[in-house]
């Protein structure tokens, strides 16, 4: 969905106008120190709001269901479910940055539309570069959402006469974001 994004400037919508002033983040890693390290790096950022934590695959799904974080830092080797399995289970529009110690999964990770791939140990610059990419993606995602809402309104207006088509939309509105 976010692959066909429109630059936010064209739509003229800033991300704060729609989704508030901060992003929520989920940090998933089975190692406490690794999570602490990412949290430490995130805390200095003014646009990062809530930080959730998960130490295994099941917790990632749980936290995601409950809080719908904007961004996930995902370790690959985790108990329960691996990061790769999780990425294919989570919805397409969630922004994922993989953080892993070993790079054999890099290609799979990018096939799964991960926005970033951090190899442990990573320095601050690499971390913030990945975060910046994620921010941009989140902005575009918000713009895309906005654009799609606008498109939907147009679509509904144009198709108003056709009761057959509009009925589908009305019947299953949850499928259109």
């Amino acid at each position: 969905m976010h692959n066909e994004s429109t630059p936010s400037s064209l739509i003229g919508v800033s991300h704060s106008a729609i989704s508030g002033s901060s992003y929520s983040v989920l940090v998933a890693d089975d190692e406490t120190l690794a999570r602490e390290s990412v949290k430490h790096l995130l805390r200095s950022q003014s646009d990062i709001g809530e930080i959730y934590e998960a130490q295994d695959g099941y917790q990632v799904l749980e936290v995601y269901q409950k809080y719908k974080p904007d961004l996930i830092f995902l370790d690959i080797q985790m108990p329960g479910k691996t990061g790769i399995e999780l990425a294919s289970m989570l919805p397409d529009d969630v922004v994922i940055i993989f953080a892993t110690a070993y790079d054999q999964y890099a290609i799979t990770a990018f096939e799964l539309n991960a926005i970033g791939y951090l190899l442990k140990p990573f320095d601050d610059d690499k971390f913030y570069a990945a975060l910046a990419k994620a921010r941009k993606q989140l902005c575009e995602k918000v713009s895309t959402d906005y654009r799609q809402v606008t498109e939907l309104i147009h679509h509904l207006a144009n198709e108003h006469k056709s009761t057959y088509r509009s009925r589908i939309v009305v019947k299953d509105p949850g499928r259109i974001r």
């Binding site: 120190l33 390290s37 140990p121």
Partner: peptide, 18 residues
């Protein structure tokens, strides 16, 4: 195990960061 090696290096990096 390379996972072990790099995870340990990450642990050390985390410890320094903290």
């Amino acid at each position: 195990n390379p996972h072990f090696l790099f995870n340990t290096l990450n642990t050390i990096a985390s410890l320094i960061r903290l």
